[in-house]
């Protein structure tokens, strides 16, 4: 289980996370929605220790991420797959090498690695792209390779940072299906998105991040029936009151 407990994080004068608390229960997909710039990516990075929170605690399976030694942190990262918002593929490596890198680190042998590469590329509907370089792929294809790189590891948790942004509607639906099927295999998913259609398809629970905290968290039905004006506005995509979404400045 992943638990965020009163996490705060500022960059200079800008307070991005302001006491964020969220539990991510095992075996389900939790979707985090929120305005652009509200700190969704920062939240995911706090979970894997890429960003250190200023305050509060992040717990994964009971261990506090900020208090871990190098070895413990590496071990933790072995349990978590991370899909980056902009794919973050290694551009000096082929697609197959990108996927193989994490598998090799986990000590899999060559034939397992080859099989996992093939399987995961098939799942994201990119078979036969093993030998291509990221620069030769479209943005959406890169994104899917990023997803393949994470699922190939068969981790306990997968953090998806906007897995469907930049994909066409059909491919988006396929990725949504993939996230649901991955959950059915017992993987806990934390999905960041601002695509509401995808959020309702994938999310067993949906949490809205607003002004550095969780504004509301609940089941799909609860969020759909929410009477919180901020949540309503967001899920209905109505313009107006965007000022509320602007980054806030910390006092002083």
């Amino acid at each position: 289980m992943i638990q965020l407990d009163g996490v705060t994080k500022s960059f200079g004068a800008q307070r991005v996370l302001d006491g964020l608390s969220l539990d991510v229960p095992d075996g389900r997909n939790t979707v985090v929605i929120g305005y652009s710039g509200s700190g969704k990516s920062v939240t995911l990075k706090c979970i894997v220790g890429l960003i250190e929170p200023d305050g509060g605690r992040v717990l994964v399976d009971g261990g506090v991420v900020g208090e871990m030694s190098r070895e413990e942190l590496a071990e933790l990262r072995g349990r978590i797959g991370y899909v980056f918002q902009f794919a973050a593929l290694f551009d000096s490596m082929t697609v197959a090498e990108n996927i193989a890198l994490g598998l090799a680190r986990r000590g899999h042998d060559r034939s397992t690695i080859a099989r996992r590469i093939e399987e995961s590329l098939a799942v994201v509907e990119l078979p036969g792209t093993e030998g291509r370089y990221p620069a030769e792929l479209s943005g959406g294809m890169r994104k899917r390779v990023g997803i393949a790189r994470a699922i190939a590891l068969k981790p306990r948790y997968i953090l998806y940072d906007e897995p469907t942004s930049g994909l066409d509607p059909v491919t988006s639906a396929v990725m949504d299906q993939l996230m649901v099927r991955t959950r059915d295999l017992g993987v806990t998913g934390l999905v960041v998105t601002h695509d509401m259609r995808s959020a309702f398809r994938v999310g067993d629970r949906i949490a809205m991040l607003h002004e550095g905290r969780i504004r509301q968290v609940g089941t799909r039905a609860e969020i759909q029936a929410s009477d919180d004006p901020v949540v309503r506005q967001f899920i209905e995509g109505r313009p107006g009151q965007m000022a509320a979404a602007a980054p806030r400045r910390a006092p002083g």
Partner: peptide, 18 residues
Amino acid sequence: GTMKVTEQVDALETLAYD
């Protein structure tokens, strides 16, 4: 530098590499 700003270094770390 390019790897850093395109988050490839972060990606490397999430794959449990130092």
